[in-house]
Nucleic acid binder design. Sequence first.
DNA 1: CTACACTACTTTATCGTTAAATAAGCGGTT
DNA 2: AACCGCTTATTTAACGATAAAGTAGTGTAG
Lengths: 357, 357
Amino acid sequence: MTLARIAGELGVSAMTVSNAYNRPDRLSGALRERIFETADRLGYNGPDPVGRSLRRQRTDVVGVLYSNPLSYAFDDPAAVSFLRGLSSVTEGADLGLLLVPAASGASGGRDPRAAAQAAVDGFVVYSMSDEEPLLTAALGRGLPTVVVDQPARQGVPFVGVDDEGAASEAAGHLLELGHEGFGVVSFALSPDGREGIADPGRQEGAAFQVSRSRLRGYRSAVEAAGLPWSGVSVFECPGSAATLGHRAAGALLSSKRRPTAILSTSDQLALGVLAAAEELGLSVPEDLSVVGFDDVSPGAVPPLTTVRQDHEEKGSLAGRMLVSLLRGEDVPEPRRLPTRLVVRGSTAPPRWPVPAS
Amino acid sequence: MTLARIAGELGVSAMTVSNAYNRPDRLSGALRERIFETADRLGYNGPDPVGRSLRRQRTDVVGVLYSNPLSYAFDDPAAVSFLRGLSSVTEGADLGLLLVPAASGASGGRDPRAAAQAAVDGFVVYSMSDEEPLLTAALGRGLPTVVVDQPARQGVPFVGVDDEGAASEAAGHLLELGHEGFGVVSFALSPDGREGIADPGRQEGAAFQVSRSRLRGYRSAVEAAGLPWSGVSVFECPGSAATLGHRAAGALLSSKRRPTAILSTSDQLALGVLAAAEELGLSVPEDLSVVGFDDVSPGAVPPLTTVRQDHEEKGSLAGRMLVSLLRGEDVPEPRRLPTRLVVRGSTAPPRWPVPAS
DNA sequence: CTACACTACTTTATCGTTAAATAAGCGGTT
DNA sequence: AACCGCTTATTTAACGATAAAGTAGTGTAG
């Protein structure tokens, strides 16, 4: 069933039927009624969305690009909050939200064709590595695009936080408490799935801007306190799950110079660190201080000291920016949303000053 | 930039350019290379998704219809798990997932036009009321559709659980413990936003099949134990948030015949009940037993006795069914997924037998 | 030397819609 | 009878792509 068939049935032009649906005020009430009635009778459900999109050159859909398999997003509380904020804005603007499927290639990267095949008016790109081909493909489409968290690119509207500053503040907190022996548990520095200690080269060369920034923040605070960064082991996990943090902490805590404090680049990892500590008979915060990032784990025991950021607001801001772009309005300067260090029960002064060697 | 322009530039037919992208084996490697190179040079990103969908009569997108504003879905752990399961299957089949925006009308129902406007190959409908116009509109499209949780409709592929049986089991557990005074905290019976005690008429007339079934399950167990259902107050909340459960429990627990046990149709509501009990100085489970539904609140204190169901599997099954339908394969009989009563710390025998009056 | 399969590409027609321009008719005025 | 502004409906021409059928040209077998 198509517009034309309905039109034929009634002896009117297709345009008139189209108008019945799109500009009801442009035809007489009587005719409009007859059209809807005929449509009903013949089982026509209104203009076909695809034909309509082709002609109007817009889809009223926003695409979401995620660097991992889609289903991981629903496992990550930060991503879920982000989507909540984003969806509330897009729905308010009567836009659909398309979760773009991108099969993962062998390299860990995602199939860039996904971005080319998505019938959307614009993209929201969530947390990708610097040179992700999927991102390049999306930007290549020339559609309005907002990047969230990473990578910040010249000329591309961006939403994120000051990761370096926040990380520095987190490390500063531990330093103030008197800690001198640190370990870092980080999520991926690059999307190659590596797991293990990351040397400074790998740290600086990280393909994930957020990882790079947070490590830099930790480092600058540590060095500002006169301590050598070389004394800090950075354990890289290939993702951000508690089990990965658990393994990482296991490695760090069994090294010969055991840290008295562990900085984690996510709460999920920090949760794993807590579990590892418990397993090793270390009590937190007495024997070990732990700091998370994101503030998405309200139920942790002990409650996590962490860097709070408003993920929902991030989604909502990204949504508002994209909606403005779609409407052809100007978009305000890239803004960094605020973060706040929330001190809870997982950090305390070290039991003793760290011995000199 | 279009196929035709690239074709013109090279002096070949549009079809050949199309084939370069869709059936690379149908043209010589040399020409293919020239085409890609020209496309690159002119900034062509491959076939336009909308034109392509129009011609092929498919979009490779699955629409998700939700009975509440979309952003609520990301607040509901059951819905999030469901989406995780669903998205893993759709992504595996290289299908996009379109979260369909449906502005809420005054009646609380959602704008049915949303279903007509969505450019999708099929729908997954998540937990809707019996006569929701949005659902009718979706089914009217004649696209492959799978309904999840409710409403089960003759001839429409369905995924859900045996709510009545599970609820009956939950109530049975309390009866076995010796409880005789019950209260029920239920999420919406009908989408009209009512809050307060629901009489048996409203219970039976509920527009949400799941609500109806769970209440029936509670009731059948209570009556099977020889107790009158009229003695059980059912407090209806307009949604499923902890704050609503809190208010509901406040009302039930301050009535003159205070229940010794409260059955909640969701964990979220049960969490509110726990909060209300604490506020009133009642300890759980000593003074009050509480049972949830869904098993999505691992962190509750005390840990909730609840009905466990596998939301992720539900999403994944719905996805598999829809994918089969899209491929024109047969879909197995509507199946009810299993549930299991998980007894934890929120239920115990009543402190004393309920006094006769 | 015809027949036939095969490759590499083209032609034609169509998917379902809507923007923009155009026309026809209205009662009334000049 | 020409022209008004206004409403209502029509005509025309894309929007960007691909299915299906068709046409050369080439090699290969009988």
